[in-house]
C-alpha cells in the first residue's frame, strides 16, 4: 500500500519497473510531493501566449488568442520527469480559454503566463470590485486603480518569492482619458501607446510601434482593429503556441466590449516550396 495520497491514481513509473516485477520492498521509493513542505509556483503549467494592446483615438483595444497550452513535460525532479513525459499525450489542450477579463465598468485586463494564477487574479479583482460597490459611495475602480492594485499584488508576491506567473496588460477609458499599462511577475510596471507580452513583444511590437507611436489621436477604431488582426495573424504564423481563434476587447466612452471569437484566415501555400515546411522532395 502506498501511503502517500499524492501518488494515488498516478501512472506507474515504468522506467524503473515497467512490468511491476520487483518485490514491493525493492521498488524505488516513490516521491512525496509534500515532503519538502509547501511547493511554491516555480514554473507555469497551463500557459497563455502573447497579449497585444494599443491606444487609439477613442480608447484602447486589446487582443489575445483562446489557447491554453499544456507544458510539453513537467520537469520537476529526476524521477518525475519520465512520468511527466509519459503523461503528455493524455493531457487535454484548452482551446477556448478566456484571457481577456472585464474589471468594473471601464477596465479590461489580459494575461499571458500561467492561466490558473490568472484566474486567481480574476477572483481577487472581482472581489475588490464587489467590495468597492457595496460601499455604495458612488466610487468605483478605473484602469489606473486596477493597474496600481495589480502592481502591489504582483510585487508583494514576488517579494515573498511566491510569484503569480503572469504578464498582465491593463487597459481602460475613464473620464475622457485612455489608460494602458503592464505588470509582470516581478512587479515591473510601465505604460506605453502600444504594449505586447510574450512573443508579441518581439514580433508584434515593431509593427504596432510603427503604426501607433505619435499617431494615437489619428487611429480610428477600424484602423486599430485591422492592425491588431494583422498582428494576431503574424503571431499565429510564427508562434507555435498560438491559436487562430482570438478575442478583441475595446474600451471607449461607451464602455467595455469583449468580442466573440474571431477566426484568422491563413494561407500556407507558400510553404510548398520551402524545405522544412511542406512535403520534402529530397
Amino acid at each position: 500500500m502506498d501511503h502517500f495520497p499524492t501518488n494515488w491514481g498516478r501512472p506507474r513509473n515504468d522506467a524503473f519497473d515497467p512490468y511491476g516485477t520487483y518485490p514491493i520492498h525493492q521498488r524505488p521509493a516513490t516521491k512525496d510531493n509534500f515532503a519538502e513542505g509547501v511547493q511554491r509556483t516555480q514554473q507555469p503549467i497551463v500557459t497563455g501566449t502573447s497579449v497585444l494592446a494599443i491606444q487609439y483615438k477613442d480608447g484602447i483595444m486589446m487582443a489575445a488568442d483562446n489557447l491554453g497550452s499544456p507544458p510539453p513535460f513537467l520537469p520537476l525532479t529526476q524521477s518525475d520527469r519520465i512520468l511527466s513525459a509519459a503523461s503528455y499525450g493524455s493531457l487535454a489542450r484548452f482551446k477556448d480559454i478566456q484571457r481577456l477579463h472585464q474589471v468594473g465598468n471601464s477596465t479590461v485586463i489580459g494575461a499571458s503566463g500561467d492561466m490558473s494564477d490568472f484566474q486567481a487574479i480574476q477572483s481577487l479583482l472581482d472581489e475588490v470590485v464587489i467590495d468597492e460597490f457595496t460601499q455604495g459611495d458612488g466610487h468605483d475602480l478605473g484602469p489606473a486603480e486596477v493597474h496600481e492594485y495589480l502592481s502591489r499584488v504582483m510585487y508583494s508576491r514576488r517579494s515573498k518569492i511566491d510569484p503569480l506567473w503572469n504578464s498582465i496588460l491593463v487597459g481602460g477609458f475613464r473620464d475622457g482619458k485612455r489608460f494602458l499599462g503592464y505588470i509582470d511577475l516581478l512587479g515591473t510596471t510601465y505604460s506605453s501607446p502600444s504594449i505586447a507580452t510574450g512573443y508579441g513583444a518581439y514580433i508584434a511590437i515593431p509593427i504596432l510601434r510603427s503604426a501607433v507611436d505619435g499617431r494615437v489621436d489619428e487611429l480610428t477604431e477600424e484602423n486599430a482593429r485591422n492592425l491588431l488582426h494583422e498582428c494576431m495573424r503574424v503571431l499565429f504564423y510564427r508562434d507555435a503556441r498560438s491559436l487562430d481563434k482570438y478575442q478583441i476587447a475595446t474600451v471607449n466612452a461607451s464602455g467595455v466590449h469583449i468580442s466573440d471569437q474571431v477566426h484568422l484566415d491563413t494561407s500556407w501555400s507558400f510553404a510548398e516550396g520551402i524545405r522544412g515546411y511542406g512535403a520534402q522532395t529530397q
Partner: peptide
C-alpha cells in the same frame, strides 16, 4: 531526444531584473 534532461531541471525564480 526523449524529452528528458541529462541533468535534473530546476528553474529558480529570480526576483530581480
Amino acid at each position: 531526444p526523449d524529452g528528458s534532461f541529462a541533468h535534473p531541471q530546476q528553474r529558480q525564480f529570480n526576483p530581480y531584473t
